[in-house]
Nucleic acid binder design. Structure first.
Length: 514
RNA sequence: GGCCUUAUCUACUAACAGGUUAGGUAAUCGCCCUCUCAAGGCGAAAAUACGGGUUCGAGUCCCGUUGAGGCUACCA
C-alpha cells in the first residue's frame, strides 16, 4: 500500500543508543515506527547512535538487534543489514559531522566555545546559590570564553594550539519557535528559554542533536517518531533544519507518551521490573560489568506476538472493542492521530491476559513442544501424543507454558500424599470402603473411555443409592491428590485403566486405617 | 526554580467536528454451570481532578488552580 498523498516514500528510523538493553518503552517506539512504515509501504532503518563513547556498553547493539528480531520488528536498512544510506552506526560516520558544524560557524549559526567544564560548573553553582538558573545563551554568552568574545586572532591561535573546544548553536534572541507535532499539535517556545546547545564535542564527536539532524537529512527521513523526552529539544532541531537550509525537507515529528511505572508515578525503570515482578526488557540481560541479571519477556515465557499486541495498545488503540490483533492487523489499523497524549502505566495483569489469549490460539503440538523441556527438567518423560493431549486439556488454565507443570504434574507423577484440606472436608468414615467397592466396576470396563467410565460410575451410584459427588470427589483425590483438575472421566481415560486403578488401589491402601 | 507536555472507573482506554442511562477490556465481587479447580455465560460495583467561563446544552472549547510526567550535561 502506498500513500498517494505523500509525494515522498515514507522513511522512518529507530535510533537507539547502545548503552544497555532496550527498554520496553524503546521497543514500543520501534514498533510504532515499524507499523507506520509498513502501513505506508515505506522503509524503516536502524541507526545506532553511539556518539557518547563513555556510555558504550558491549553487547548492547547485538541485544537490540536480537530483541527486535524476536518480536518480528524487521528493518529494511541499517546496522547489520546495510543499505545505500550507510554507514548506519554514528561512530562509523564520525568524519562526516565536523564539516556540518563548521558550516554553521561560517554562516553565523554557531560558534567555538573554550570554557572548561570547571568554569561552567562554578557558574552553575553560583547561579544556584542565588536561586537562579545559569544558561549558556544570548544573555550570558558575551561574558564567556568563545569565538564571539575573543578576537579572530585569539580564536585562530587557540584552535591552532590544539586547545579543547566545543561548537555551540547560537540561538537568536526573542524568537518564537513553533514546532508541529503530529500527536500534540502546535507547540510554541521562545528562544530565550533555550540554551546554546553543544553541537560538537571536544572529543571530536557530534552530540545527539547535530548527528541526529545531519543523519535524518542525509538518510531522507520523512517522519521522526520518538519518545516524549525529546519534545523539549525539538525546537533546537527545527532551528537546525532552518540553519542548514533544509526546512523544506524537514521530517514531521511525533512525540510518543512515556511508559510509566505500574504503581505510583514516574517513568518505568529497570528496578521497577525486578521489584514488581515483571520484565522491562524484551530479552534477558546480564550486565557485563556487575553481572546483574535482568529478566526478559522471552525468558519469562511470553509469546512475541502477545508482547507486540500488548505494547501496541499501551498508548494507542484503533477505536473499536477489538483487542487481540496480529501484526498485520496492527499495521492495517495503526494511525498516529489515535496515539494518546498522556503517559500509560504498565499493567502486569493485562500483559498476562494477552499471553493467555495467545496461548489459547497456539497449536497444541506447539505448546507440547515448548512444554517437553519443562517436563525433562522435572525428570519426567512421556510420549508426545500424551503431552499434546494434556496441553489441549489444560492450556486454558494457565498464562504461560511453564505454568503448565504446576497444573498438570499429576498427569505424569502419581500423588505421593493427599491435600490435607481436601481430606478433612471430603473424606468420610465410609469413603475408603466406597472407593474400594468402585474398583471392580472400573476394572470391568473394556474400552476405558470417558464415556464408559461415566456410565460405569453412574451405575455404581445408582446401586449404592448415592449421588455422583460422594464417589467422584474421593476418586479425584486418589488420582490427583487434591480437589482440582479437569473432568475426572476425561482425566482417567487419558491416564489409562492401569494407571488409574493403580492410584485408586494405592489410595485405598493409604486410607484404610483412617 | 524555569520551560514544555499532560489529566475519563484500580489499570489500559472509547465517546468521529459539543447533545450517550459516559461504552469496552483487565482486575475485583456475586450468580449460573458442576464430582473439584479452572475456563465459559450472566450480572454488580467502579470515572470525566478542582474552580470559573462560552453555550439552550461541556468529558469534549477557553482561562485559572492542583496533580502527574519530561527536559533543564561536552548523555542520548
Amino acid at each position: 500500500m502506498s500513500d498517494n498523498n505523500t509525494a515522498q516514500t515514507v522513511r522512518v528510523r529507530f535510533a537507539p543508543s547502545p548503552t544497555g538493553p532496550l527498554h520496553i518503552g524503546g521497543v514500543r517506539t520501534a514498533l510504532y515506527n515499524y507499523l507506520f512504515a509498513r502501513q505506508h509501504g515505506g522503509h524503516m532503518l536502524l541507526r545506532i547512535e553511539d556518539t557518547d563513547q563513555t556510555r558504550f556498553v558491549p553487547g548492547a547493539e547485538q541485544y537490540i538487534i536480537e530483541a527486535l528480531d524476536w518480536l518480528g520488528i524487521r528493518f529494511d536498512e541499517g546496522v547489520g543489514i546495510g543499505g545505500e544510506y550507510g554507514p548506519y552506526r554514528q561512530s562509523d560516520r564520525k568524519a562526516m559531522y565536523k564539516p556540518y558544524a563548521l558550516q554553521l560557524v561560517e554562516s553565523g549559526w554557531a560558534y567555538y566555545a573554550f570554557d572548561t567544564a570547571e568554569e561552567l560548573d562554578s557558574r552553575r553553582k553560583a547561579a544556584e546559590a542565588e536561586k537562579k538558573n545559569f544558561q549558556y545563551d544570548a544573555r550570558t554568552r558575551m561574558q564567556l570564553r568563545n569565538s564571539l568574545t575573543l578576537s579572530e586572532e585569539e580564536t585562530a591561535q587557540l584552535l591552532a594550539s590544539g586547545a579543547p573546544y566545543v561548537i555551540r548553536f547560537k540561538f537568536p534572541p526573542h524568537t518564537d519557535i513553533q514546532i508541529h507535532d503530529l500527536i500534540r499539535g502546535d507547540v510554541k517556545v521562545s528562544s530565550d528559554t533555550l540554551d546554546d546547545k553543544v553541537l560538537f564535542k571536544s572529543d571530536g564527536m557530534p552530540t545527539y542533536h547535530l548527528a541526529n539532524i545531519v543523519d535524518d537529512h542525509l538518510m531522507r527521513i520523512t517522519h521522526v517518531i520518538r519518545g516524549e523526552e525529546w519534545l523539549p529539544s525539538a525546537p533546537l532541531h527545527v532551528m537546525l533544519y532552518r540553519a542548514f537550509g533544509w526546512e523544506d525537507t524537514m521530517p514531521q515529528f511525533a512525540h510518543l507518551p512515556l511508559l510509566l511505572k505500574p504503581d505510583g508515578n514516574g517513568k518505568l525503570s529497570k528496578r521497577d521490573g525486578d521489584r514488581l515482578g515483571f520484565p522491562v526488557f524484551p530479552l534477558q540481560w546480564t550486565d557485563p560489568k556487575s553481572g546483574e541479571v535482568s529478566s526478559g519477556y522471552r525468558e519469562s515465557g511470553y509469546f512475541p506476538a502477545a508482547v507486540v499486541n500488548m505494547l501496541a495498545l499501551l498508548g494507542w488503540n484503533p477505536g473499536g472493542d477489538e483487542e487481540i490483533m496480529s501484526m498485520d492487523t496492527l499495521i492495517e489499523k495503526f494511525s498516529i492521530q489515535r496515539i494518546s497524549k498522556s503517559g500509560a502505566k504498565f499493567d502486569l495483569e493485562k500483559a498476562k491476559w494477552f499471553n493467555h489469549q495467545y496461548l489459547m490460539m497456539t497449536d497444541d503440538a506447539e505448546i507440547a513442544r515448548r512444554f517437553m523441556p519443562v517436563l525433562a527438567q522435572h525428570g519426567v518423560s512421556a510420549s508426545e501424543e500424551f503431552v499434546v493431549a494434556v496441553c489441549r486439556l489444560m492450556k486454558e488454565r494457565v498464562n504461560f507454558v511453564k505454568e503448565l507443570w504446576d497444573q498438570t504434574s499429576y498427569f505424569f507423577v502419581a500423588p505421593e500424599s493427599y491435600a490435607e484440606a481436601a481430606m478433612k472436608k471430603r473424606w468420610k468414615e465410609d469413603t475408603t470402603a466406597l472407593v474400594r467397592d468402585s474398583i471392580p466396576q472400573l476394572e470391568a470396563i473394556q474400552d476405558f473411555t470417558g464415556e464408559a467410565i461415566h456410565d460405569a460410575m453412574q451405575q455404581f451410584c445408582e446401586a449404592h443409592g448415592i449421588g455422583f459427588g460422594p464417589i467422584m470427589i474421593p476418586l479425584r483425590i486418589a488420582i490427583v491428590g487434591d480437589t482440582k483438575g479437569p473432568d475426572l472421566q476425561t482425566l482417567m481415560a487419558l491416564l489409562g485403566k492401569e494407571e488409574s486403578l493403580r492410584r485408586i488401589r494405592t489410595c485405598v491402601e493409604r486410607t484404610k486405617d483412617l
